[in-house]
Amino acid sequence: MTHDPFVPSSYPIVDKRRETHDTVTLVVEPETPIVFAPGQFNMLYALGRGEVPISISGDPAEPSRLVHTLRAVGHVTEGLAALEVGESLVLRGPFGSGWPLEEAKGHDVLVIAGGIGLAPLRSTVLHVLHHREDYGRLAILYGARTDRDLCFADDLQAWGGRFDVEVRVTVDQGSPGWRGRQGVVTAVIDKADFDPATALAMVCGPEVMMRHTARALRAVGVKDEQVYLTLERNMKCGVAQCGHCQLGGELICRDGPVYPYPRVAPLMRIREL
């Protein structure tokens, strides 16, 4: 954490990976390690453009190597995605709540992500893999728009090659010649191997995907209380001062972005919010 949460720090980018046609991973190595909890985010600043909240996608066991994965979908993220190795990444944080990794100890863990939603969960997967004996079965269910939109393809292959991780990837529309699964991510939930009575599900993706994922989980016996998800709103200050990310009584930058589903489900049903 920077001393003053409003004062950003600047770090040279030491590595840049192109995940997909519109998604990149930027790596910086702060002199002072930045300890974070999987699920937390930083505010990344594109000079002259603005700030955006971006989840930390790196390994929590490597706090001296800070990794962010972002999708270029707007003016600010396009500016960030255009940064190259050697240029400065300006950021402040980390902010917000993390995934319930303590509560998940001793239980099966379901990681369910859609699109860029795998980024905030990647650090969770890495944490569980580092502490494999603390958790039960680990299933990673990941959906993307097309096979060209799959993030962290190398990681998915590596995780899928392990005997103690189940990986199911599906795309909404495969390219010609695609031999993997095609269909929405909710379609692979009932195929995964986990104990529905005790498993914890950690879900990240578009809100409609998360709502339907919770519904599909209920259909196989996973209660809403066992489901956690991460919300995204227009975060500005990151420290619950400005109110831009308010959702009902929640200030997502401080109270979230990771929430137990029952706490935010009623808010997610209000169409005007």
């Binding site: 860029i116 728009r145 939109d149 909404d172 409609v208």
Partner: peptide
């Protein structure tokens, strides 16, 4: 759900 094109930019 598929028709929703969930992950469109």
């Amino acid at each position: 759900l598929h028709r929703m094109d969930l992950y469109q930019p």
